[in-house]
Design a protein around this nucleic acid. Structure first.
Lengths: 366, 366
DNA sequence: CCCCCAACTGTAAGCGCTTACCGGTAAGCG
DNA sequence: CGCTTACCGGTAAGCGCTTACAGTTGGGGG
């Protein structure tokens, strides 16, 4: 028997009210736990709601009380097709997003995801569209210009991830500096390596800049000889790393005792290139990464690297945003601690030597 | 110099109108390309909009024209921590979601993602919350009961992924049957294998049921001897697959000539287990998968499998939903073609033999 | 048994935006 | 030069929900 009342398609609070024999205000109050409706009233409303299968309209709610309970997240998608090479970075972004999602759910928020391709033109438009549908925005690295971010921030709260703090927006990032310093210290002090190279990532990345600077500073502290610059310019990818090694070797240069890579992907490429040339890691050359992607521990030898708490990064991004949304204030620059993960590619022997397990903290999370 | 007008925080269409010296109707028309505003008017509005950095409120828009331009997607998240084993499945869901996202953007829609943990209690509540904020819902496999889906479908359009068509909801899935039949045909006919086993996935999965049925039917067609049932019960995971092989061997059973696995993960586990026992693939036992995950081609030997067009699956899910939202009608059960990918684990030699490259089509996508 | 007060419930005013409808203006024609 | 015809732009009515405020009900004390 088809329900009698539902002549009109969209079910509204009025339908519930009339079926329950109360006013719309009462329905609203029952649904939101406001006021103290009489048991009888509550019951009738609840019955009507379930019988009708009523779901309040989010837009109307949002319009009425000025809160959408939605945060927008914008990120780059590896264009269209998925090459194997992307798997990791894909995973990376997704882990962060998952962190955001989990944190959001704790507050009853949902996450509006919008990926843009590397070639997409109207990123600003896309971002604006998302901004209109959300209470706040989380932007992954390098989505729009600093000026664009500042402009947007005038309209909705904005949190950037792993970027440089921008005027008006909040930023959340990992403590690259401490991580890199701990890593270099481990190589220079614990292992006593005197010559180090930093195989960089994309130069326009704030992360990379921070890592480069920390590398140089710490190496200088310990008086280690370093190699950096154009000859050691990678791009965060495995092939980029391999290419650098190949050209170094082809030009007959002598490799440094340890190669510090901008990220794990790069380290992976480097280790492959080295293996192809028959150079042993870590016996002849030590190699380290940054990020601690899942495969890092399965390489031969297992990769010494710096773990970034990606999920926490996402969670913190949401928490900061939420704080801004609900209280109006929030930290402009939050830094998450990273952890040095010592495995074997640095020269440490076998089973995770609990050597300089320097947990470099900077600020607490939760 | 701080903007003079903005005494009130939230910028509205009224602010734009007064700054441009026109009415709110004109602003709206310019912004939405309705009517034919005079060039002069358009220009003044646009200037005011950019100067103010105005972004129209999505909730108000949605309320006014009955369209949120948002689709909700609900899926299970591998609980909290990420074990390596999950990487693939994670990727899997994400690939589908990406497909949804891409298709959605073509229509100006955004995607509201909501993951739920395996242990989460109030899934129904969560889903309802998302439903209220979206124009339609896409539910991954096994989110809520069939009854729950039907109830929901009374409120918003719902598309289920790879499930069984449910009353009221639409469903989108891959053509498991054709894929499995092509695969079995290849093994039984092209290779002439007479004994086959089907190492199943979780029994409650509609996908698995379809695959099992097709396996049995096609094997029967060719008069091949088959093994199925409790002894060959896996769970879609690598360890599940390995376990089955181990127990078969431990009990001294003779393995069939070919093992058809419910998915690639399982095949991966099987190949590992076989390798540990020194059994050669495909010389002694052939192994096949299902899904064609990225690593499938990198196994030794490369895995023969059936490719499911995951991204297209997501895109089609959105397209079906969109059709329902905008026109009110849509296919209740859409089936995507899969493709048999012949590599070496089935016994085919070296470089992708272009043998029975049976592209089993069922219905067209776009 | 009636009155008064405390609760609870209903009425109505918006939230910001779209759009039907109507008045006003400018261009076209006699 | 006056009137008709098109168009443009403005006014106002909602979209579905929350909530301040007013109104109503029920119960306890006098």
């Amino acid at each position: 028997m088809p329900d009698p009342k539902r002549l009109k398609g969209p079910l509204t609070i009025y339908d519930v009210a009339s079926r329950a024999g109360v006013s719309i205000a009462s329905v609203s109050r029952v649904l939101n736990g406001q006021g103290s409706p009489r048991a009888n009233t509550r019951e009738r409303v609840m019955r009507a709601v379930t019988e009708l299968g009523f779901v309040p309209d989010g837009a109307a709610r949002a319009l009425s009380n000025g809160l959408k309970e939605v945060v927008g997240v914008v990120f780059r998608r590896g264009d269209e097709t998925l090459f194997e090479d992307e798997d990791e970075s894909l995973l990376f972004i997704d882990v962060i997003n998952r962190g955001i999602d989990v944190a959001a759910q704790r507050r009853g928020f949902d996450v509006l995801m919008s990926s843009v391709g590397y070639t997409d033109q109207n990123v600003a438009t896309r971002v604006a569209a998302v901004a209109g549908k959300a209470d706040g925005l989380i932007l992954h690295d390098r989505m729009i210009s600093a000026a664009g971010i500042t402009r947007l921030a005038g309209t909705v709260p904005v949190v950037t991830l792993a970027g440089t703090p921008t005027r008006g927006a909040m930023n959340v990032r990992c403590d690259n500096e401490s991580g890199m310093r701990a890593l270099v210290r481990h190589l220079a002090v614990d292992h006593g390596y005197r010559s180090l190279a930093y195989l960089s990532g994309r130069t326009d990345s704030p992360d990379n800049k921070a890592r480069t600077k920390a590398f140089e500073a710490e190496a200088a502290t310990h008086g280690a000889e370093i190699q950096t610059g154009p000859d050691w310019q990678g791009n965060y990818s495995a092939v980029g790393g391999a290419k650098v090694i190949d050209s170094q070797l082809d030009e007959g240069r002598k490799l440094p005792r340890a190669i510090v890579c901008a990220n794990d992907q790069t380290a992976l490429g480097v280790m492959h290139a080295l293996a192809r040339r028959g150079i042993r890691v870590p016996a002849e050359v030590a190699v380290t990464g940054f990020d601690d992607v899942p495969v890092a521990r399965h390489l031969h030898p297992p990769l010494t690297t710096v773990r970034q708490p990606m999920q926490e990064l996402g969670a913190m991004a949401f928490d900061v945003l939420y704080s801004k949304i609900s209280t109006g204030k929030a930290d402009l620059d939050s830094v998450l601690p990273v952890q040095l993960i010592v495995r074997e590619s640095c020269g440490c022997a076998g089973r995770t030597a609990p050597t300089t397990q320097a947990a470099t903290a900077a600020q607490d999370g939760r």
